[in-house]
Computed example of a mutant assay.
Amino acid sequence: MLATFCTLFITIVVLVSSLGNASDPDPLQDFCVAVDDYKAAVFVNGKICKDPKLVTANDFFFSGLNKPGNITSPVGAKVTKVFVDKMPALNSLGISLVRIDYIPKGLNPPHMHPRASEILVVMEGTLYVGFITSNPENPNQMNKLFAKILHPGDVYVFPRGLIHFQYNVGKTNGVAFASLNSQNPGVVTLANALFGSNPSIYSDVLAKAFQVDKKLVDCLQSLPWRQN
Rank of each mutant, 00 (worst) to 15 (best):
G20L: 15
D26T: 15
V217L: 10
V75N: 05
L93K: 12
D36Q: 13
D36I: 08
F31E: 13
N140A: 02
V187S: 13
S23Q: 13
S117Q: 14
T4F: 12
F195T: 02
F131E: 01
M142E: 13
P139Y: 06
V44A: 05
L150I: 06
F165I: 09
P68F: 10
K39Y: 07
V205Q: 00
N70I: 07
P88N: 02
L180C: 06
V13Y: 03
K208M: 08
P74C: 09
K215A: 12
M87P: 11
R226I: 03
P52E: 05
R99L: 10
I95F: 13
A147C: 10
V42C: 00
Q183T: 15
P159V: 00
H113T: 08
K105D: 07
F5Q: 01
Q141M: 11
A77Q: 02
L65W: 09
Y167P: 05
D85S: 15
T126Q: 14
K67Y: 03
I100M: 09
H151E: 14
F165H: 09
H164A: 03
T7G: 11
H113C: 09
N184A: 15
A176S: 15
N184L: 12
V84A: 11
K81I: 06
P110D: 03
H111G: 07
D59K: 06
P88I: 12
K81D: 01
F31T: 14
S23I: 00
L145I: 15
D36Y: 05
T80V: 15
N21V: 06
C6E: 05
G125F: 08
N91Y: 02
L107D: 06
V33H: 12
V122K: 01
D26K: 10
S203I: 00
P88V: 11
D218H: 04
D59W: 05
G130M: 04
N184G: 09
N91M: 01
Q221V: 08
K148W: 03
L65Q: 04
N138F: 01
A77C: 15
A34E: 08
N143D: 02
L190G: 10
F210N: 07
K39A: 07
A209R: 03
A207Q: 07
Q221S: 09
G161E: 09
N70W: 04
K50P: 06
S63Q: 14
P114R: 00
T7L: 05
A3W: 02
S179Y: 03
T7E: 09
A40H: 07
N135F: 04
G125H: 07
T11Q: 04
S17G: 15
L54R: 13
A40T: 03
S23N: 09
L216T: 14
K214S: 00
V157S: 11
G161Y: 01
G20S: 08
K105Y: 07
K81M: 14
H113N: 12
K53C: 10
S222G: 10
G125C: 08
N228Q: 06
D30T: 13
D204Y: 01
L28A: 04
V33Q: 08
V212P: 03
